[in-house]
Structure formats: C-alpha cells, structure tokens
Nucleic acid binder design. Structure first.
Length: 259
DNA sequence: ATGCCTCCCCGAGGGAGA
C-alpha cells in the first residue's frame, strides 16, 4: 500500500497539478494539507472519478486537511483532541481497510512564526496535544502512522542553509525538542530510517529561485508505530514534482507498506 | 531573508505562509 502526504497549498490552485500527479504516482492513500477550502467546495469528483474515497476537514481560506483512499475508510475523526476551543482545521484520522487495518493520521502542524510570540506558543501547545495523541496511538500496539506537514526541520542536515533558520519557529530548539519528544515515544521517522545524509528536502520557497538553487528544507514527515515500521518496504520524496507546471511549494513524500 | 512569490479573500490590497 502506497501512502503519500502532500501539502498542496490550495486545492483550487492545484486542481490540475494534483490529479496529474495522482495519475502518474498512483498512490493508494493520500493525506493532503492546506486544502484552503470548506468541505462543501472541495472538488471531490476529481478524486472520486479516479476511484478514491474522500474525507475532508476544511475551513475557509486557511489550513484544511483531507484523506483520499482507494481502500475503504472507517472511524473518521476530525480535529486534534485536547482543546475544544481550537478552530483550526489541522488534523484528520481514519482507519484504512487493506489486508489489515491501518490507522492513519494526517496533520498540518502550525508554522509558529514569528517566534517568540502567540503563534509560537500555539505551535508548542499543539505539539503537546500531538504528544498525547501519539502516546495513545502507540498504546494500541497496531500498525498506525502520523504524516503530514510538521513544519519542523529535525536536524541541520535537513536544510540547505541551516544558519538561515536558526531563529525560525521551524528550527528553534524548542520546536525540535518537541518533535524529538514525540519521536522518542517509539516512532520511526520513515525517511531517515532508509536514507541518510544531507540534500533531501520536501519544501522550496517560491521566492529567490529556491528550487533552482536546491535551497530547500525537509519538513514533511512520516512517523510510524513499530507495528507499521516493520511493514515498511520503501520511503521516498517525489522532489521532481517541484519542477512541474504550477507546483505547490511542497512536494509529496510517500511510504510503501506491506499491508 | 522582519520577504525577492504565491496563496487566500475578492474585485483592492492585506494577511499568511516558511
């Protein structure tokens, strides 16, 4: 089962590029972030005519996450637990019914800039809630994963110019520590389990020719429970997608699980 | 790089992103 995560930076803006990528990459399941659309306006037909089940958790203008799946989806849940007041659409989870059941969580973690400040506080508070959900997920001892735009550069090697990100909410010590704290519960960071070394990125800014200079950062991640990690056959970043027509600033990252 | 694009809102130009 090929499962991808992709921050598309607006479903309306990606209404042509996204189906083109689906047709060529043929993922079974896709976790989308930044759909920037309310549920009623999400163009589900584009995906349903390709055989995908569609579940969305949208909001007007900002954020918004969705799941596309060629397999049945059960027990869909919207919103990260832990704060009833949180209005931002950044979390959706469901069970995919393949050979075995797989719990998948799609997330769009807050950016957090400028730091320090209220947006950075919101990011760290959100990550505490993520920690709680992650712990419960591990306790099931079932194959499960949390994937999406984490807005975290885990290590210096995950940025072309780490010094430029030193004070940024994506790379500040507090952000990276909060990410490590989740990882250290016992998750496998899928990409780093298979590929070492610098030069692997999932985001390139639209500005200043960042893509042409390969001035990127790796901020889109898959975290696998041990039961899911045991099933991993592959994990790749579809970097070439950044060079396609009218691209998102992020590219897809995917895992292949034997499930 | 406290922003050189691109997205959203809409129907001007500001907020947000990373």
């Amino acid at each position: 089962m090929k499962i991808a995560t992709f921050n598309i930076n607006g479903i309306k803006a990606r209404a042509e590029a996204l189906p083109r990528w689906l047709d060529e990459a043929q993922p079974d399941v896709v976790l989308l972030q930044e759909i920037k659309s309310v549920d009623e306006n999400f163009p589900r037909e584009i995906f349903e005519e390709r055989g995908y089940n569609v579940e969305t958790h949208g909001q007007k203008s900002f954020n918004g996450v969705a799941i596309l799946s060629k397999y049945p989806l059960e027990d869909v849940s919207r919103g990260l637990p832990g704060d009833e007041e949180d209005e931002q659409a950044r979390w959706i989870e469901a069970t995919v019914i393949g050979k075995r059941a797989l719990r998948i969580c799609g997330l769009y973690l807050p950016n957090g800039n400028p730091a320090p400040g209220p947006k950075f506080d919101y990011k760290l508070a959100w990550m505490e809630r993520l920690y709680e959900r992650a712990r419960d997920l591990l306790a099931t001892e079932e194959p499960a994963l949390m994937a999406g735009d984490y807005n975290i550069i885990p290590q210096a090697e995950d940025a072309k110019r780490p010094e430029a990100w030193r004070e940024d909410a994506l790379f500040r010590p507090e952000s990276r520590a909060a990410f490590r704290k989740v990882l250290n519960l016992g998750f496998t960071e899928a990409f780093r389990a298979r590929t070492q070394g610098p030069g692997h990125y999932s985001f390139w800014d639209y500005q200043a020719g960042a893509w042409n200079r390969n001035d990127g950062i790796r901020i889109d991640h898959f975290l696998l429970t041990p039961q899911a990690a045991d099933l991993m056959r592959d994990c790749q970043i579809d970097a070439a997608v950044r060079g396609h027509e009218k691209p998102s600033d992020h590219v897809p990252v995917w895992v292949d699980l034997d499930i």
